[in-house]
Design a protein around this nucleic acid. Structure first.
Lengths: 180, 180
DNA sequence: AAATGTCTGCCTATCAGTAGGTAGGCTTCA
DNA sequence: TGAAGCCTACCTACTGATAGGCAGACATTT
C-alpha cells in the first residue's frame, strides 16, 4: 500500500479520533477540516467510511508488528522480546495518552462494519501469533495449548491494563497492573 | 432510584446496544422503536442522551456490585470470593455474548460526555475497592500498595479477557486467558 | 513544438437520512 | 385538579455519500 501524503494525514487524524472516541468518534467533515480539505475530497481518498476504517486498522497493525521485529530472532532472549513487547503497548498509551486503536475497535466490534471488524480481529490474531512464535522458539513454554493460552493471557492483560489506565485517567495504572 | 417500568426497559435496550456498538451504538429513535413508544417519549424519561448514558452505567455498576456481596463476609474464603468475582464477569460475557458495559465505555472514555465518563470510571473505582477489601480482610496480600496492584491486575485481566474474547468472537478465549 | 487525452486532487452543491432535542396537546388515573 | 405518560409535529445540526466540474501535471501522438 503506497498512499499519498494526504491519505496518510487522513489516517493519522482518523486514528487519533478513533482512539479517543471509538469508530463513531470521527466524521469525514471533522477529518477534512483538520487536514485542510473538504469532506468530499476525503471521499476521494477513501470512498466509504468502512474503507477508511479498515485502512486505518490495517496500517496500525502493520506498523505495530513491524516495531516488534522477528519473534524468532536468536540475538535476543525471550525476556528481552517480551519486555520489548510490553514496552510497545506502554508507548502507544503514554506517547499519545490514548488507548490502543484495536482495543477500542475490539470493544465495540459487534457494531462495526464487517471489513473494519476483520481488521480489528487481525490485530489480535497477529499479536497472538507473534507471541506464540516467541514462546515456541524458546522451547520452555509447554505444548501448543499452553503457549496459546500464555500468549492470550499476556495480550488480554495488556489491553486490559490500557483500558483500565485510561478509565482512571492515570497511565501509572498500566505499570501497576504489569508489575503483578 | 425507583424508575418506571418503561424507564427500565429503555435502559435495558440502551445497555444492550451500547455493549454491542459503544456509546454511539444507540439512538433515541432505535430505542423508542424497540420499546414501542416514540422518541419524544424517551426524552420524557431521560431528557438528554447524557442523562440516559449516565443512568445506564450507574445501574450497571450498582447491579454488578450487589451481585458480588460483602467483600468482608467471613463465611466465604478469599478463593471463593475471587472465583465468584471472576464468574460474575464470565456471566456478563456468556449470557448475552456481549462485552462488559463499562469496558466498552472505558475504551472510548476520552470521547464521552462528562457524566457518562464519571459513571464509567465509578465502575472501576468500586471494583478496585471491592477487591481491595477482599484482600485486606484476608490479610495475606501484603501492604496497601501490593493489594492495590493485585486488585488492578485482576480487574485489567478480566476486562482484557472479555475484550479479546469478543474480538475473536469466541467466548472460550475468556477461560483460556483466565486459566493462566 | 503543439495538440490531445488522461490522471490526480480538489472543489461546490446537493442529496436523503438520522442525530438529539423541544413545544404543546391529548388521555388516563389517582 | 393535576400529575404521569405518551403523542404529533417540528426544529437545527450533522451524517455519509454522490454528481459534476475544474485546474494542473503528465504522457502520448501528430
Amino acid at each position: 500500500m503506497d498512499r499519498s501524503q494526504k491519505a496518510e494525514e487522513i489516517l493519522d487524524v482518523a486514528e487519533r479520533m478513533t482512539r479517543a472516541g471509538g469508530y463513531g468518534g470521527f466524521s469525514f467533515r471533522e477529518i477534512a477540516t483538520e487536514v485542510g480539505i473538504k469532506s468530499a475530497s476525503v471521499h476521494y481518498h477513501f470512498p466509504t467510511k468502512e474503507d477508511l476504517g479498515a485502512a486505518m486498522a490495517e496500517r496500525y497493525t502493520d506498523r505495530f508488528l513491524k516495531g516488534l521485529g522477528d519473534p524468532r530472532d536468536t540475538t535476543r532472549s525471550t525476556e528481552e522480546k517480551i519486555s520489548a513487547y510490553v514496552e510497545g503497548f506502554r508507548q502507544a498509551l503514554v506517547e499519545d495518552d490514548l488507548m490502543c486503536l484495536c482495543g477500542v475497535l475490539g470493544a465495540e466490534i459487534a457494531g462495526l462494519p464487517v471489513r473494519v471488524a476483520e481488521q480489528a480481529r487481525r490485530f489480535f490474531d497477529r499479536n497472538r501469533e507473534w507471541l506464540d512464535a516467541v514462546y515456541e522458539a524458546d522451547g520452555g513454554y509447554g505444548d501448543v495449548t499452553a503457549r496459546h493460552n500464555t500468549a492470550l493471557a499476556l495480550l488480554a492483560k495488556l489491553e486490559g491494563a490500557m483500558l483500565v489506565a485510561r478509565s482512571f485517567g492515570d497511565n501509572e495504572v498500566f505499570d501497576q497492573v504489569m508489575s503483578v
